[in-house]
């Protein structure tokens, strides 16, 4: 038991220590990356706002990640509905087709997307970045969704029809609310995936610069603590998104109950 506990804590530490280090150093008053830290300041945060290029790259990345999450969500909803209605064979085919891109190294995916864009005469832009990110995030969404949807009971849809709801009404009132948590967590995941994607992006970005690309080019010149503050903000942002998802669910339930009690 002791050993098991030790392993759990070690694993957690292994996962979390890099994050803690980044957060600590983001408040470091000095330039150097060395312990002990002599004094704290917010200068690296202030610097973010003084670097217009960094700001632009951040905004661009947020836009791309948001667009990726939305497109993935729409495609994912459609794919899950199809998945629910397919037989065993159809499900396997759909899964194989959707999940294949994940087996392909990003490098080759980047090259092939670039070649495709050139063949089609598409100008490299934010749009090509979003398209590439969707190609990356859909397989991941399919994997995450498959396990959850396998538990979905289709007689619930029949019960809803039986009680007088139309096909669309059933989707709105039963199917969607039940698959929504899975879809939302998938959307958050694809947002995160897109936000820090670098390899594929570098092929299809053209003249655009996303945050990971900007950080990378910055790092090539010199390692600056600015990276720590940017990363900390990004981390905070991710946690906030997940927390909002959690509390929205809670709030809806509470307000529904109080509404009924008052009537």
């Amino acid at each position: 038991m002791m050993l098991l506990k030790a392993v759990v804590y070690a694993t957690l530490a292994y996962l979390l220590i890099p994050l803690v280090v980044i957060i600590l150093f983001s408040f470091n008053a000095e330039q150097s990356f060395s312990f002990p830290i002599n004094g704290y300041s917010l200068r690296w945060y202030a610097l973010i706002f003084e670097d217009p290029q960094l700001g632009q790259a951040l905004v661009k990345s947020l836009m791309i990640a948001t667009a990726t999450a939305i497109v993935t969500l729409v495609l994912g909803t459609a794919a899950s509905l199809a998945w629910l209605r397919l037989g065993r064979f159809g499900r396997s085919v759909l899964e194989i087709l959707c999940i294949t891109p994940i087996a392909l190294p990003g490098l080759f995916l980047g090259v092939s997307l670039l070649v495709l864009a050139a063949q089609l005469g598409v100008r490299l832009s934010t749009v090509t970045i979003v398209v590439s990110h969707v190609v990356l995030s859909v397989p991941m969404l399919m994997i995450a969704m498959r396990a959850r949807l396998a538990l979905f009971d289709r007689t619930l849809e029949e019960a809803s029809r039986d009680l007088g709801a139309s096909q669309i009404g059933t989707f709105k009132r039963i199917t969607l609310p039940l698959i929504a948590p899975t879809l939302i967590s998938c959307a958050i995941l694809s947002f995160a995936l897109s936000f820090d994607e670098f390899v594929v992006t570098s092929f299809v970005a053209g003249t655009e610069t996303t945050l990971p690309m900007y950080i990378w080019s910055m790092m090539r010149r010199t390692v600056t603590p600015l990276i720590n503050s940017v990363s900390t903000l990004a981390l905070l942002f991710s946690i906030a998104v997940m927390a909002i998802g959690f509390f929205v669910g809670r709030f809806k339930r509470a307000s529904a109950l109080s509404e009924r009690a008052s009537s």
Binding site: D153, T155, L156, E158, A159, S160, D162, L163, G164, A165, G169, R173, I174, P177, L178, A256, R260
Partner: peptide, 26 residues
């Protein structure tokens, strides 16, 4: 016609009241 399903097929995201109210609501 209304049906009682073999494994009930009650809506897990709704409570007892809302399950029963479902048909009237739609």
């Amino acid at each position: 016609v209304n049906m009682v399903f073999q494994r009930y097929a009650l809506f897990p995201h709704l409570d007892v009241f809302d399950n029963v109210a479902y048909g009237l609501k739609v």
